[in-house]
Design a protein around this nucleic acid. Structure first.
Lengths: 332, 332
DNA sequence: GGAGCTGACTAGAGCGCTCTAGCAGAAGAC
DNA sequence: GTCTTCTGCTAGAGCGCTCTAGTCAGCTCC
């Protein structure tokens, strides 16, 4: 509390050196003798001095800050942010988070970031129109993670959703399933690609192609998909379902089980993402794992490449997903 | 992209006015004629000028920033952050988020915030030792949300967990349950209070007091509690369970249902928090609702009162919870 | 013993804003 | 017609840092 926080000036005065020397010590660059360095550090500790990063960034030519727009409430975004923190630290960048919530739209989150002078932005699962993204990309390097978008100047880092769903269907086919349905993600980022992967695989394997189950991002959407499924005449019921994502799969699982269908014996279910909950022992959801670490690293990598090496926006970076077999799939 | 972002100077030159006038216009204070104001705004729009908030905060005496430490992955923290955003905007503050993840400990999150020069910090469900909190509070107004802690100078904003659990037990008692167990939260913030509420109620109502079920914060912990419960000899099995939180309740629900117990007829379950998933139609979890909006508003209110009115840290602010009856509770 | 280093340190000009003081010039008071 | 009061605007000194361009000892080297 006290009056105001101590500044570099105060530390300098106490250590009996110039302000510049204190700066040298705190930036950890060469130019101070070990003895002085220690004296400065001691003075700083006495005063409880903490460098003001805002001022430091102002004085510096570069801010080395990357803005991140993420959705509070999307569990997978949490995993991504974790990996972004690590990757950013490795490349000497700092993250500034801007959350999207029920009452804080994405536009607002982006606007806030622009005012903070970050050098690049990483958008997780952005729902902004391509035009808005292109506009943003015209101002500063922009990386869209999870969402594949063709917008001028926008870098894309995403999972190979199509391959993921193909792998899911192939896995089910390998188990002997013939009638596989897909709980669709609608307009969610990645949904179109997963839909395509599902259709590709079903056709390629010569399986019947039943209509899509209307699903979505949340457990509730999954439960709705289950209702649709359960309403089907027995002959048309699938023996396996691929879901848009894990949350959807979890909701679906819950609902079909309560309707008396045994999983995996009467119905196999495959999710997408591999969120934490999927691996819980009592759930054991077979799923397509998105590699959050790779996605985060590539996103920061793209931003850094454009900032540090002056690279132009590149083609989409696509991370292969991995099938994780647990206990919600079995032969029909 | 281009060279560098335009500054106030550029806007001033283009509009043919002084830098100070541009500042006046952008701060929205009196002192510029409508005509000039418009001219400045037009020039700024032409240039794509965006004021640099870092510089603006440097120049200003106060930064009006509140730091928020939250856990990515705790769904309820998302609700709180949403409400904090709203409350902060209302009191003219800005939020700066610092996330806690698997690989980014709370200490690190706090440290980052100190460097950003926020005027106060709000910690959601902090797990820091009381000493560390007191130290932090010695530097700047500190509000602990969800976690009740007796540390010098630390403001606390929390739900009346004890009352919540009393209400849960009373509800079950009212339905005719006699044997009610509690899936405990261990060392999680609020767990001790909820445990106390449970015990209070059970004693007061003259119910038997069985041992606690070891639970925790996550679905997995809930499933583990279910295992313990299911392993009980039939005579000792409860007819109802109160869970530390919703996620724990959900995990428990899932596990007991799969073991063949019908909910609510064979077992009633009450959660805590009222996270989004609790209200999903297919789940319909009876729970104790924490008022995220009130918690957020009070947290910002405390910070603002200390900053703006110079108030000293006050006594804990306790928000009453509310019982939300859905479909996981019924007479035994 | 002077040139040329090097290592340790300082002065001072920014960075992009804010904000106090102050200055013209028009309007109103008497 | 002078004096005040406003309105609309500008000059310029910060805010707490960074960083370039020094200064100044104390070396080595021939």
């Amino acid at each position: 509390m006290s009056a105001t926080r101590p500044t570099m000036e105060d530390v300098a005065a106490r250590a009996g050196v110039s302000r510049a020397l204190v700066s040298i010590v705190f930036r950890g660059v060469a130019g101070a003798s070990p003895a002085t360095r220690e004296r400065v550090l001691a003075a700083a500790a006495d005063l409880g001095y903490q460098p003001d990063r805002r001022a430091s960034r102002l004085g510096r030519a570069r801010t080395r800050m990357i803005g991140v727009v993420f959705h509070l409430g999307h569990a997978f975004h949490g995993d991504l942010v974790d990996s972004l923190y690590v990757a950013a630290a490795e490349s000497g960048y700092e993250l500034v988070l801007s959350g999207v919530t029920a009452r804080r739209p994405e536009e607002e989150a982006v606007r806030a970031l622009l005012g903070e002078c970050c050098e690049a932005v990483v958008l997780l699962g952005s729902a902004l129109p391509a035009r808005a993204l292109a506009e943003l990309a015209a101002r500063l390097p922009t990386v869209s993670v999870l969402r594949d978008v063709r917008a001028d100047g926008v870098d894309v880092v995403r999972t190979d959703d199509t391959a993921g769903l193909r792998a899911a269907v192939a896995h089910l086919h390998g188990l002997g399933h013939r009638r596989v349905m897909h709980a669709d993600g609608g307009r969610a980022p990645g949904a179109a690609q997963r839909r395509r992967g599902y259709r590709d695989a079903v056709r390629r394997l010569g399986l019947p192609e039943p209509p899509l189950l209307p699903g979505g991002l949340t457990e509730e959407d999954g439960a709705r998909a289950a209702d649709t499924l359960l309403a089907l005449p027995p002959g048309e019921r699938p023996t396996a379902v691929t879901a848009f994502n894990d949350r959807c799969a979890l909701g679906l699982l819950d609902a079909v089980r309560r309707a008396g269908l045994e999983v995996p014996h009467m119905l196999s279910v495959v999710g997408f993402d591999d969120i934490r909950a999927a691996s819980y022992a009592h759930i054991g959801l077979t799923t397509i794992r998105q590699d959050a670490d790779a996605l985060g690293r590539l996103a920061v990598g793209r931003a850094a490449a454009r900032l540090d090496e002056g690279e132009p926006p590149g083609r989409p970076l696509v991370v292969p997903p991995a099938l994780v077999v647990r206990s919600t799939t079995a032969p029909p």
